[in-house]
Structures are given as C-alpha cells and as structure tokens.
Simulated scan of single mutants.
Amino acid sequence: MPTTIAQRYFEELENWSESIKFYSVEMNHLESKLYEVIRRNSVVGIADKVNTYQVSLNNLSEKFDSLLEYIDAQETEINIDGKLLDDLAIGFEVDKQQLELRKKMKVLEKKYIDAKYACNNFLMGSTKNKE
C-alpha cells in the first residue's frame, strides 16, 4: 500500500512532537544543573550569568509549547475521526501549514542546539572554576 501525503505529514508531525517532548526533558535537566550551580557556588555574579541561560531555556520552552499547539491543530486537520485524509483532500492550506511548521521546527531546533551548547559550555566552565 503506497504512503499517502497525509500519512507522511502525520508521521512528520508525530516525530516533531516526540522531539519536542525529548527537548523539554533535556531543558528541565539543564535547568536543574543551572540551579545547582547557584546553590553550590559562592562566586559573585554567578546568579546573573545562570539567569541568562535559564531565561533562554524558558523562552525556547514556551516557543516549543506554542509550536506543539500548531502541530496538534495540523494533526486534527489531516486526521478526521481517526482517518487520514485522502491525497485529493489535502488542500493548499494544509500543504502551506505543513511547510510553515517544518520551517518553524527547523529554526527552533537550531536555536535549541545553540542554547544547549552554550549552556553546557557554561556548566563545564563553572565546574572547572570550582576545582
């Protein structure tokens, strides 16, 4: 049985949802590590530095949550009463929305990777400074 457009879209949406959930767990873990830096470290100004990373992670989390809402709406659009739309029923708006979601996901994933990398570098630096 050939794969339909709706099936490919739905699988893509599901993959994004799972990725966002995974990123959320990672962000929570990073935030816990940042909190530990504040709790254990007596360096002047460390809280301000940590706050920068926490704000960045919180902003990304909010953007991912918002994207999840759009993903859910798109899933509802192509999966009506548990049945995926036929290829002929996939209209311009559904295609356009899928493309927009794809672009937003790509941008947010890049921002997340950059934020995670920066945060991990900061955490490594704060650990080395303690030793």
Rank of each mutant, 00 (worst) to 15 (best):
W16E: 00
Q98E: 06
E26K: 13
D87M: 07
T76D: 15
S17P: 01
I90T: 06
G82A: 08
N51Q: 12
L68D: 09
H29M: 04
I71K: 04
L34A: 08
L13E: 02
E26R: 15
V44I: 12
D86R: 07
E69Q: 15
N41M: 02
A6I: 10
D81P: 02
S61L: 03
F64N: 01
S42T: 12
L84D: 05
G45N: 09
T52K: 14
G45H: 03
E75W: 01
L68I: 07
L84T: 03
R8Q: 14
G91H: 08
L88S: 11
Q54C: 07
M27I: 08
F92M: 12
Q97L: 06
Q54M: 10
T76R: 15
K103A: 09
K21M: 09
S24Q: 12
L34C: 11
E77T: 14
K21Y: 06
I78S: 11
E14H: 03
V44Q: 09
F10H: 05
N28Q: 14
S32D: 11
A73M: 15
N41E: 10
S19H: 07
K103T: 09
E31M: 13
K106A: 13
E75P: 05
F92N: 15
V50C: 08
I5E: 13
R40L: 10
E26N: 12
V94G: 04
I46Q: 06
S56P: 01
Y53F: 12
N51G: 10
G45V: 04
Y112C: 12
N51V: 03
R102H: 10
G91A: 09
D72G: 14
E62M: 07
R8Y: 03
L67S: 06
T52N: 13
V94I: 15
L85M: 05
F22C: 01
H29S: 11
T52H: 10
L13F: 02
K21P: 00
K49C: 04
K49R: 15
K96Q: 11
E18F: 02
S56W: 05
K103V: 08
V44P: 02
T76E: 15
Q74P: 04
V107S: 10
K96N: 06
N28T: 09
S24F: 05
L57E: 02
A73H: 11
